[in-house]
């Protein structure tokens, strides 16, 4: 995995785990790899992984079972909220960029619909 040198590593690992959960590489109730294994796989420090995971535990996305390890929560509401949160974050970035170009909200929607239509055709063709 490539990291951005200027962004805290633990934060990038959180994002990475969010993605793994959203795209269902990690399903609800799945066990996470051991902390040291994750550290080796991502070539980062064990403490950094630990920090990312403990923040996910605080957010309720990951549940720690003593002596057994870390598991993705089975609370589907939490997981839906996570997905919505991550998607909204992306949209927020795009929306901010476009409004900075003085594109009106209605136009944004119009551009987006047109773009999606084009992409669908492209990807199918």
């Amino acid at each position: 995995m490539q990291f951005d040198d200027k962004v805290p590593i633990y934060y990038q690992i959180k994002k990475y785990l969010y993605k793994e959960i959203i795209i269902e590489h990690l399903n609800p109730g799945d066990k996470l790899p051991a902390v040291r294994q994750l550290a080796v796989d991502l070539t980062v420090n064990v403490n950094t992984i630990q920090r990312a995971i403990s923040e996910l535990v605080e957010e309720g996305i990951i549940v720690t079972q003593r002596g057994k390890g870390n598991f993705v929560t089975t609370d589907m509401e939490k997981l839906f909220a996570l997905k919505r949160h991550v998607v909204e974050e992306q949209i927020e970035v795009m929306y901010n960029n476009l409004t900075a170009l003085q594109v009106s909200p209605d136009e944004v929607l119009e551009y987006l619909t047109t773009y999606i239509g084009q992409r669908k055709e492209q990807d199918n063709g």
């Binding site: 040198d5 200027k6 805290p8 590593i9």
Partner: peptide
């Protein structure tokens, strides 16, 4: 702390 450099100074360690 390494993450402090990134978080507070917005710089890479290098």
């Amino acid at each position: 702390a390494a993450d402090k450099i990134r978080e507070e100074y917005n710089q890479s360690i290098e």
